[in-house]
Amino acid sequence: MIINHPLLGPRDAQEFTYLGDASLIDRPDWSAEDANEQYYGYAYLRDNPAGLHRELWFHEQGDRSWLVVTRNTLTHEITRVEFASHVARLAGRSR
């Protein structure tokens, strides 16, 4: 698989390590009433879709940036690559 890095262009997926579903960006609030329940879902439950999947890849052998890659789990086709930091800021995070 080739991941089209937003800054570095097309890079072999071997340069990256994989973390999983991009929802892992949205860490629950530890001080919430139902923090236990939220963290259970955050840590253990997954949507695991057959089709488009937004997922986190870390460019470990490159510029050490975290990327959100949109990839089809049925075909391995990658349709979109964004910086995870941009995705987080767009969702209202400070960093």
Partner: peptide, 18 residues
């Protein structure tokens, strides 16, 4: 391997990745 896709039809999220 199809557990996630099948159980999603019953609105179940699983502690599983395929």
């Amino acid at each position: 391997g199809s557990s996630g896709a099948l159980m999603a039809k019953a609105d179940q999220r699983l502690p599983i990745e395929s």
